[in-house]
Amino acid sequence: MFEIGFSELLLVGLVALLVFGPERLPGAARLAGLWIGRLKRSFQSVKQEVERELGADEVRRQLHNEQILQMERELQQSQQLPPALAAEPPAGAADATADSASPAATSEVPPVRPA
């Protein structure tokens, strides 16, 4: 990622020694290490969360695609059936509509009496 050689590290160390002094340099190095560790952990957690969300979106997309494929298969199967079978409702559907139909909803018309 970064191309930092030994000479650059030596220069940074020398400047830090001059700025902080020999007494405060170990504490400053420890504090810098802690902050760098915290930053790395926070970036890693954000990265994992984004990857998890992307994975969830991918799963949703796959489920949606599978539903579309299933609907296409059902449509192709219904187009392959003979016309007489394709027009008839499924056996369970006919029983359910007959049970729930009321006399008013049927197509039978009572005979008309002349007045």
Rank of each mutant, 00 (worst) to 15 (best):
L9N: 10
L10F: 13
L11H: 09
V12A: 14
G13K: 03
G13Y: 03
L14N: 05
V15S: 06
V15D: 06
V15L: 12
A16L: 13
A16D: 07
L17R: 13
L17C: 03
L17H: 09
L18E: 06
V19G: 01
V19D: 01
V19K: 05
V19T: 10
V19A: 12
F20V: 03
P22Y: 00
P22E: 02
P22M: 02
R24K: 14
R24M: 11
L25V: 07
G27S: 10
G27Y: 13
G27E: 13
A29I: 14
A29W: 09
A29F: 07
R30Q: 14
R30C: 12
R30A: 15
L31Q: 15
G33R: 13
G33S: 12
G33N: 08
L34A: 07
I36V: 13
L39N: 06
L39T: 08
L39W: 10
K40Q: 03
K40P: 00
S42I: 13
F43I: 10
F43Q: 14
Q44V: 02
V46S: 14
V46Y: 15
Q48M: 03
V50Y: 04
R52S: 07
L54C: 01
D57I: 11
D57T: 02
D57R: 12
E58C: 01
E58F: 11
R60V: 03
R61T: 12
R61P: 00
Q62Y: 01
Q62A: 15
H64S: 12
N65T: 11
N65E: 15
I68Y: 02
I68A: 07
L69V: 04
Q70H: 10
M71P: 00
M71S: 08
M71Q: 15
R73G: 01
L75N: 08
L75R: 07
Q76P: 00
Q77I: 02
Q77P: 01
Q77C: 02
S78W: 09
L81A: 03
L81E: 05
L81M: 13
L81R: 09
L81I: 01
P82F: 00
P83M: 02
P83Y: 00
L85S: 09
A86V: 07
A86C: 09
A86F: 05
A87C: 03
A87I: 03
E88S: 10
P89I: 00
A91D: 14
A91E: 12
D95I: 06
D95C: 05
D95F: 07
T97C: 05
A98R: 14
A98F: 11
D99K: 13
S100D: 05
S100F: 06
A101M: 15
S102Y: 04
S102W: 04
S102A: 06
P103M: 12
P103F: 10
A104M: 02
A105V: 01
A105L: 08
T106G: 14
S107H: 15
E108Q: 06
E108S: 06
